[in-house]
Write a protein that binds this DNA or RNA. Structure first.
Lengths: 112, 112
DNA sequence: TGAACATATTCGGATATGTGAATGCTTGCA
DNA sequence: TGCAAGCATTCACATATCCGAATATGTTCA
């Protein structure tokens, strides 16, 4: 695997790895949304939401569509959601393993 | 999706999102390896390799097995590789899209 | 035109992260 | 024992990232 590739790859991963941006992607998971809808759903400030949306846009993770004064955002590639879900599974299995072996490093509730 | 979950999730993603750690995971992709093998394969310093391995270990991404003075590292959950590959696909498709579309940049608004 | 609304950008300071250098542990073996 | 190999940790500092506040841009409609 070439070094350059790891660089681009980790760049994209870093873009996806922010908690706030993940909350945004969660809001966009099933349908496109305007900025104000995302603001309402995530509870983040408008400016901060816009900042994170700009980062996602620059990385090509989301695309935009303007309608009047509103801008609709949508996830460009559904594989991003698949990757998100895979990591969710890893997380749950890791937590399950930790509960089985030793004490409580992470969250104590084993629910979905 | 609870807020806590996004936090844990992004924590794990951040752990995976470092270029150096990805190079390490690349070295561990198909088989377990000792630290010195990883050092040789990635070209990183021993200390820095160990630093990143410690982070991966703390996140539960890799597990260790000692044999004499050597420590073997392996990826704990193959889904991590699957997620890595999914992001690779997204990356390639994004690059392909950018080449296909007219503009060289990112914004789809031609007027100004 | 200008006012009102929706969204985007810039700036500055706080916090987090990554790094090399130096050093500390284990383990095996003479 | 003591020493060397293999690995882990700590420290100090540079860089990167994040966020709120303020402000700018862009669009619609009277």
């Amino acid at each position: 695997m070439p070094k350059d590739f790891y660089c681009l790859h980790s760049e994209l991963c870093k873009t996806l790895a922010s908690e706030k941006r993940q909350r945004i992607l969660g809001a966009l998971r099933d349908q496109e949304r305007t900025v104000s809808e995302i603001v309402a759903e995530t509870g983040m400030s408008q400016a901060n939401t816009s900042q994170h949306l700009a980062i996602l846009r620059a990385a090509g993770v989301v695309r935009t569509r303007r309608e009047g004064t509103r801008v609709y955002y949508a996830i460009t590639n559904p594989k991003i959601i698949q990757a998100f879900d895979l990591i969710s599974e890893v997380l749950q299995e890791t937590i399950a393993d930790e509960n089985r072996t030793v004490g409580d490093a992470l969250s104590p509730s084993p629910e979905q």
